[in-house]
Design a protein around this nucleic acid. Sequence first.
DNA 1: TTGCAAATTGAATCTAGAC
DNA 2: AGTCTAGATTCAATTTGCA
Lengths: 366, 366
Amino acid sequence: MKTKTKSAAALPLNTILAGDCIEAMNALPEASIDLIFADPPYNLQLKGELHRPDNSRVDAVDDAWDQFASFKAYDDFTRAWLKAARRLLKPNGAIWVIGSYHNIFRVGAALQDQGFWILNDVVWRKSNPMPNFRGKRFTNAHETMIWAGKDETSKYTFNYEALKALNEGIQMRSDWVLPICTGHERLKDEAGDKAHPTQKPESLLHRILVGSTNPGDVILDPFFGTGTTGAVAKMLGRDFIGIEREAAYRTVAEKRIAAVRKFDREALAVSTSKRAEPRVPFGQLVERGMLRPGEELYSMNKRYKAKVRADGTLIGGEVKGSIHQVGAAFEKAPSCNGWTYWCFKRDGKHVPIDLLRQQIRSEMGN
Amino acid sequence: MKTKTKSAAALPLNTILAGDCIEAMNALPEASIDLIFADPPYNLQLKGELHRPDNSRVDAVDDAWDQFASFKAYDDFTRAWLKAARRLLKPNGAIWVIGSYHNIFRVGAALQDQGFWILNDVVWRKSNPMPNFRGKRFTNAHETMIWAGKDETSKYTFNYEALKALNEGIQMRSDWVLPICTGHERLKDEAGDKAHPTQKPESLLHRILVGSTNPGDVILDPFFGTGTTGAVAKMLGRDFIGIEREAAYRTVAEKRIAAVRKFDREALAVSTSKRAEPRVPFGQLVERGMLRPGEELYSMNKRYKAKVRADGTLIGGEVKGSIHQVGAAFEKAPSCNGWTYWCFKRDGKHVPIDLLRQQIRSEMGN
DNA sequence: TTGCAAATTGAATCTAGAC
DNA sequence: AGTCTAGATTCAATTTGCA
């Protein structure tokens, strides 16, 4: 069973909150959220969609004079919800925001101004975008996502190995090719029309959540819509909180998420990096008698050798120190991973010392 | 012979002006420029040194011209040069600005605030970007360009058919796959080092100038560097004005442009783009819901089975890894093509997973 | 000269944990 | 808080070096 902190226990997990997202966020406890995914309104033609922080309505834009007013209003709205969102993030929390050229520059500047630390901008390259029918511009074939830590020092979650595995062993790039949401995945209303104008594909959220959350994390989506974030969070064994103003969207989302099955535990496990494995001091190999004091180690390139000492340090000529320090000194390199640099001899063959570490780790494991 | 308007006749065409770009722009006549291409400093804010896993040092952009004290200082600089640039544009003129997530959001917001009208944001997807060496973020594999008209009413130039032809008869999209500038195209100084840290590829400028200028147009580049804009403009029969503060860059650019021949067939051939490779990672089948985490795959010979995990790896007994690795382990073979080795079950029948890959490829190849 | 292997390099906000 | 150390980490393309 999962342990929760006191504040997290008070969270309305796996529910959709009704109402204005800023008010709803302000009612939640601070520093309680691991990740925020936000798909805010793009449109500067406000059409009653937008409200100022004081909840006064912003008039629609219809002439050049209003243009400045509309950017100002959009900025006010953006900064208000981002401020509320930032309060909710744990110190090591992070945020994803998606947008198009209509709004993403304003969102990005606001993120930076509020102290968020941009980690990447990621381009969702649509494999099947709507063509530009009038032939007056380029096909608008992508949207931009900004991934940012709560601040510069945040130790954000990044499941590097899992993403690399998703990409067949090559590190994941900042441009993702994924189709738009169509077919069975696209939710319809009773009339058979699309239930939401900008429903995001689950594949997009899958990659975001696998990459930047762990099972059991709490994910907040302040513009929940028809609940793609919630559906994928549930599948992947994460908790979510959605906020949505429109009752019709909430209804569709509730139904959708109820039908989702969680993947089994074994399937949720992802490839992990060596960093996550327990640290093994080199001295342990000596203590355990896997290497004897006085035994010689050879560099992988066979150019250097050094002697093991009883305290787990090496001595090679004038150079003394850890396996890393001696390796770095020999190679005149700023640093060196001694585990992958040194070999020892058994039955006339050179064996990497890292094999001994793996042996210890496998004994520790389980 | 080309006719010029009175103001254009006074322009220092096809020269490189020395000095600060704002002062130089203010000395030019207003409404005299057809297109501006600008590659301003990105304000990278790099901290320490970075080494590759092989311990070699990354030659970072640490030049004084990229240092700004704060976002405020960068914004002031940006708004000042954009204001001077906008004065120079003809009523139907347009601007392109390139940047990364460090600066592009601030540039985009400034453009909108000053009355420029964004037409597209265009993503330059690098076919050969520098990887992320520490495995802490996504490979920074793209840069963003903003294309904007002088104002909302500008009748900007857009050579739709020419771009379509460049793209093998398919409407040009907002994401361009082009290699970074290397090899013979990359200019070197006397010492054999790169002459400029951020030289842009000619292919990029080729596409921009073919798409948004006509022969005889005047193109201004206020951050001229080593003169890629001038070189491509000359090739394509356009006029240019460059502004560059550093004498060393101006010298290199002068020499480079002098060597360019108009409509040089060979040079034009170099600048045509490659098409993206349709590599499909197995993980995409999982992200896209074509296979569910937890679902079982069967080997073609029906002797083995393995379970799909959320990150696109398989687990079968003790064996974990990619479709290729697990297949190879089961067959005790040095390698295995997982695409042709594994099946899944649908309606009681075994279906090769390669069928799903083919489906994705057919969607991509539009 | 040819062919293959090894080395080089690119706009990069690039660590985590113990003491 | 700062300091120090263990040790984890790369893709594509071109150029250089050697047989």
